[in-house]
Amino acid sequence: MKMDTKSLIIDIATTLFQKKGYLGVGLNEILKECNMSKGSLYHHFPNGKEELLIACLHSLDETITTHMKEIFRDYPTTQIATQAMIEKLVIKFEQEGMIIGYTISSIVSEMGALSEAVRNACALSFTRIQEIYLNKLVEDGFSEEKAHSISLMLTASIEGGIMLCLAKKTSEPLKIISQGLPNLFREL
């Protein structure tokens, strides 16, 4: 299936943003990787790089939440589903040395330098991720209040774990988080 130009730009820019961060990627680098002119890029994203970033965040959000929903549908409890998801992240990291396509944190680590529109796109993505955990936790029999607390802790732990894996160049942080999940579910 041939990808349309706008989708191709989003795909390439998302990968670049994840590898280098928003501020670490210049417009010229995106243009070079996409093999296109500024005019072509501005045709699809009239407001420039920030509009492209928001499109990348929406695309990444859709990929992450779709993937999570599939995993959470296939496993009986939140704990088992989360451990399976972390295992997939560990394998991906150990094979590729990166975790591209499963986190928005690497793109938005410069949150203070970004606009309110970008912050809102990120907040929406984190909320959608949290809701997947929350819904599965409620299915598991947790109260809404406990499910909210656990879903926040899972979202923060896994996003933070991914960042630690990338920074330390080891999958150990995610492995430790996965091992600690039974304690998290018992304590709350």
Rank of each mutant, 00 (worst) to 15 (best):
G101V: 00
K6E: 12
K6L: 05
S125E: 03
L8V: 07
I107P: 01
I162Q: 08
N47H: 14
I30N: 04
T14C: 04
K2V: 12
Q130M: 13
E51G: 10
E70M: 08
P76L: 10
M111A: 10
M1Y: 12
R186Q: 11
E70Q: 11
M68A: 05
V90R: 15
L124K: 12
N135F: 03
D11S: 06
I162C: 07
I132E: 03
A123H: 14
G112K: 09
E110G: 11
E159T: 14
P46H: 06
L188P: 04
E29G: 09
M163K: 13
A81W: 06
V90P: 05
L154W: 14
M85F: 15
S171K: 08
G160T: 01
A167P: 00
S125I: 00
F93V: 05
Q179N: 10
P76E: 05
K69Y: 05
N28V: 08
Q79D: 01
M163N: 05
A81I: 13
I177D: 02
E94R: 00
T82Q: 05
N47M: 09
T66M: 02
L31Q: 02
K6Y: 15
E96K: 09
H43A: 05
E187R: 06
E29T: 11
E96H: 10
K146W: 02
K38D: 00
V118A: 09
I177L: 09
E50P: 06
T82D: 00
Q179F: 13
A147M: 12
L57D: 04
I107R: 01
F142N: 01
D61H: 14
V108W: 09
Y133A: 05
D61G: 03
I100N: 05
K69V: 13
L164P: 00
K175E: 07
A156S: 13
T170Y: 03
P76W: 10
Y133W: 08
I100F: 02
K2T: 12
L188T: 15
G180A: 11
G141R: 13
K146I: 07
K6A: 03
I30H: 08
I132H: 01
T82S: 10
S106G: 04
Q130I: 11
I99N: 10
G161Q: 04
E62K: 15
E145Y: 12
M68Q: 11
G101C: 03
L137G: 13
I54T: 04
G21N: 11
L181R: 13
G112D: 03
I99Q: 10
I132M: 06
K146F: 02
D4R: 13
I129Q: 05
S143A: 03
G48I: 00
M68Y: 07
E51F: 14
G97K: 12
D74V: 01
N28S: 09
